[in-house]
Design a protein around this nucleic acid. Structure first.
Length: 462
RNA sequence: UCCUCAGUAGCUCAGUUGGUCAGAGCACCUGACUGUUAAUCAGGGGGUCCUAGGUUCAAGUCCUAGCUGGGGAGCCA
């Protein structure tokens, strides 16, 4: 007999047909003559109830059916006599695949703290919360590809290992095959990278953007979706050393097109989750964050507030409150300022544009005023910056001028500058931190709990 | 990296001015219960009080350092 998934069984009618189901025991409740087993196979947050006649099965088999044990059950799918579920399976055959010693199995029927579950991240997928989060993470990943594919964007695989150290997005992890116990040195006493695997220093990527621009200036619209690495010593609920980033890059798009994309894209993904992950979202809404679904629907129902950095600074200066960090034109906005704009002043997502040139990256398009650039940051409630992007500087003189001002190694960027040298064109793009988006979509509060295996300073377990 | 809070049973925690302080709930085990829903009821086992020093007649409790974790900040996505 072919196995049926719990999701399929629960969505059908109790026809009295014979079915085979396999999964892991969540709970077992025994009373005098009958045992109830809640079985889950990961296909849905819901369990199917298995009803076992205690007198019809060997007692040592029943004893081994404990939380976490894996079973195959054959039985008839019938209407449930109890409340709480519409169908259940009356077991006729039960096979135990794997026992699960209740004395040592760390997961209990009762709730656990997120901190404890993080210590047993190899087992936490078996909880309702992490099952829901991982199913949503999958669905949104799929929706990202669907969104771009449906709109003619090409998925470009930018490199994980990079020889470029000019991205300037943060501290990098070195990639090397040199013997760390016996590092080869040049005559001058420096590390001899000539003998390293690539013959030069290499790192894990901090962004696929520069390579993404190369693709966009030939293919039109591209996007990347891959792992990204930052060796920053950041210990916060919003930072990971290894995270996934989505970076679309579009030739002939200006900053307004870019903002439209950022808003439409994030709304599409939220809509996708509401349409396709309803049960998981309802569970998270009930157990993790009571305002989750309301907040998702609110974001969909309103347009994002768009204003310039200069306008934002004026609002903050007029705001009747004390800032821990001073507000003033030319200073970068701090978390407290962004939070005020999003959560107190506008009460919806905000897109800030036209930041001072001095606080933004070299590749951003310079405005005619000579002091601002066409940057755009999308700020979300609870998370802060979820998207950072810009129209890119396509004029060679202005771009190289800026690179020199900042003292970046011009000659290492020869390949990037070739796009401006040969058939340059206006173009735009942005980066979206995937885990931050999942944080927003699930109502979880720590980024370590929305990625299967979190990497943070001093932690690379599992 | 900085600020701050915490670390006691498998989990979540209580433990007062240093002196019967080794505790509770849940989990687990045993038993009861004729359909349970985080079942219920009765009983039972279970401890490196984070680590290393120090103060004291006496330290889970006070002091110092370290480790680990949470929250906030910076950096950013």
């Amino acid at each position: 007999m072919k196995r049926k998934r719990v999701k399929e069984l629960l969505s059908g009618q109790a026809t009295g047909e014979k079915v085979l189901v396999k999964g892991w025991v969540r709970t077992k409740r025994e009373i005098k003559n009958v045992a109830f087993v809640a079985l889950n196979d990961g296909s849905t947050i819901n369990n199917i109830q298995i009803v076992i006649d205690i007198n019809a099965f060997p007692s040592d088999l029943l004893r081994d059916i404990t939380t976490g044990a894996s079973l195959a059950v054959t039985g008839t799918l019938v209407p449930s006599q109890g409340k709480g579920q519409s169908v259940e399976i009356t077991a006729s055959e039960v096979t135990l695949y794997g026992k699960c010693d209740p004395e040592t199995y760390p997961l209990q029927k009762k709730g656990h703290s997120m901190e404890f579950l993080r210590e047993i991240a190899h087992l936490r997928f078996r909880t309702n919360t992490f099952g829901a989060v991982m199913r949503i993470r999958h669905a949104i990943s799929f929706a990202v590809h669907k969104y771009f594919n449906d709109r003619g964007f090409y998925y470009l695989h930018t490199p994980i290992i990079t020889g470029s150290d000019a991205e300037g997005a943060g501290e990098m992890f070195h990639v090397t095959t040199l013997d760390m116990e016996n590092i080869p040195r040049t005559k001058e006493g420096k590390v001899d990278y000539e003998s390293d695997f690539f013959g030069k220093p290499t790192n894990l990527t901090v962004s696929g953007q520069l390579e993404g621009e190369l693709g966009a200036l030939a293919l039109g619209e591209i996007y990347t979706f891959g792992p990204t690495f930052r060796a920053e010593n950041s210990n916060t609920p919003r930072h990971l050393a290894e995270f996934w980033m989505i970076e679309p890059e579009m030739a002939f798009w200006d900053i307004t097109d870019n903002m439209d994309l950022g808003e439409d894209f994030t709304k599409y993904l939220i809509r996708y989750a509401l349409d396709n992950c309803r049960e998981d979202l309802e569970f998270l809404n009930k157990m993790i964050d009571n305002a989750l679904i309301e907040r998702l629907e609110f974001v969909l129902a309103n347009s994002y507030m768009r204003l310039t950095y200069t306008e934002a600074v004026e609002i903050l200066e007029k705001a009747n409150r004390k800032w821990e960090y001073p507000v003033g034109w030319g200073r970068d906005l701090q978390a407290e300022h962004e939070r005020y704009l999003v959560e107190t002043h506008f009460k919806r997502p905000v897109i800030l544009t036209d930041y001072p040139m001095s606080i933004k990256a070299f590749y951003m398009k310079q405005n005619d005023d000579g002091r601002t650039v066409r940057a755009m940051d999308v700020l979300f409630p609870g998370i802060g910056e979820i998207i950072g992007g810009s129209q890119r500087e396509e004029e060679m003189d202005k771009l190289t001028g800026r690179i020199e001002e900042l003292g970046l190694p011009l000659k290492d960027l020869w390949w990037y500058l070739d796009t401006r040298r040969f058939g340059t064109a206006p173009h735009s793009g942005f980066g979206l931190g995937f885990e931050r988006l999942i944080l927003f979509m699930t109502g979880m509060s720590n980024i370590r709990d929305v990625i299967p295996f979190p990497r943070t300073p001093r932690n690379a377990e599992f």
